[in-house]
Design a protein around this nucleic acid. Structure first.
Lengths: 238, 238
DNA sequence: GAGTGGTCTAGACCACTAT
DNA sequence: TAGTGGTCTAGACCACTCA
């Protein structure tokens, strides 16, 4: 059996998506939900807080929980953007080319980015993403070898995240992202269809494990015309 | 008196920033914190969850709460980016020029973005941000008049957010952000020091009130060389 | 004043990590 | 086995909204 509050979360989320709780309307009160789900108030509140954090509802003191129009938001590129999500939202025909897959001794820059120990090795993966016939994303990944022994081209072509979480059973916990704009490098011009564009958007991703250890550094380099980043931020009452 | 869990949150956060709880070390256990702060476990946990969400600690079941290296992260441009935060992180000498401040009947595009009723009026504010002598940000704000009657140049020159939250006592609750890259418009070239740059980074901000009503649409247009966006995302266990 | 969500408590049991 | 954090409960009181 699952966590009770997650079960409740999913059931309410489903009803919102199915239109059973329409946007603009109020959810049943916490007291009513307690009876409906046979749960204590704190458990109901845990589920509602998750719903609020993920943009399903908005809680208003003294009033109730208002259902938001989820369709209005193309949903949270929540935390980690994987290429699969991106591709499905951008278009249909997408291909990944694995251009490089090497086990290297990192240079100073990568060593610093990954906070890698001297002498430790690092996987270097270059992937080019083609969507609707155009090569518009160039991903440079660096992964610490200590966490991942065997990386094959097949794994890289689908999703490294999925492999790590499903096969290796390790939990990715949080990520820091930086977005900047740069002039294209020679590598960018070599791997991407840059045409006349004089800028690339660089998304730097630092990915951490459960125990706060850094394990991956990624530079995702995008052609500017196809780049879009969506962030759905809720304010925390600090 | 304040909320107990927020007081505890702040006290622990302070100790982390002062180095009293150094990075890599473990925080006292929840049981110990209960005694130290004379609080119940749930209250301690609420404070710890806030700390985790804001990147101060990482909780690991069975082990404890590990203090993260906060200095490693230039901190969360959390939710709403206001120019004041931005400027202080970018440089010292910054000026805001209010180039336009009008009450208009919105055109179709703005009307759609704001989901404004036909016939309702909208404040249109153009502001140019100069940092270290260069005009690098051009902010176009559209605010529904129904929420804000009197907007002066003085308010615009400092912070509209602060005015709304402090003077009008309204709570801004959440925001949706979109980042894309465009070619500069004539307006961009007119108001910014764009030199030879052939792109601008456009940050579109949709700002909502407490009750989920949309009230502001902002386009913040940045010269690409000075643009940087940092996102600190934690994964939620959905 | 009735009904809503927000905070806080005390205590129970479970899941995981150490040793 | 002892100690940690994760979930759940039942009940109390407070702050806010609305008729």
């Amino acid at each position: 059996m699952q966590n009770k509050y997650l079960v409740i979360y999913r059931q309410i989320a489903e009803k919102i998506q199915d239109g059973e709780f329409p946007p603009g309307e109020k959810l049943p009160s916490e007291h009513e939900l307690m009876e409906a789900f046979h749960a204590s108030r704190e458990t109901i509140r845990k589920a509602l807080n998750q719903l609020a954090q993920n943009g399903f509802i908005q809680k208003v003191q003294g009033k109730g929980s208002i259902v938001l129009d989820a369709a209005k938001f193309d949903f949270p590129v929540s935390g980690l953007v994987s290429f699969k999500e991106l591709a499905s939202s951008l278009g249909n025909r997408h291909v990944t080319y694995v251009e490089k897959l090497e086990l290297i001794e990192p240079d100073k820059n990568v060593q610093k980015q990954l906070q890698a120990l001297p002498g430790s090795k690092v996987w270097k993966v270059y992937r080019v993403r083609e969507i609707d016939g155009e090569k518009i994303i160039f991903d440079k990944d660096y992964l610490k070898q200590m966490y991942i022994d065997n990386l094959t081209e097949k794994i890289c072509a689908s999703s490294i995240y999925e492999y790590i979480e499903n096969e290796l059973q390790m939990k990715i916990s949080f990520a820091k992202k930086e977005i900047i704009v740069e002039e294209p490098t020679e590598e960018d011009r070599e791997y991407m269809d840059l045409d006349g564009y004089s800028n690339v958007v660089v998304v730097k991703n630092y990915v951490y494990f459960d125990d706060a250890s850094l394990f991956q550094y990624t530079e995702s380099r995008h052609r500017p015309d196809k780049f879009k980043f969506v962030d759905f931020a809720r304010r925390t009452h600090t």
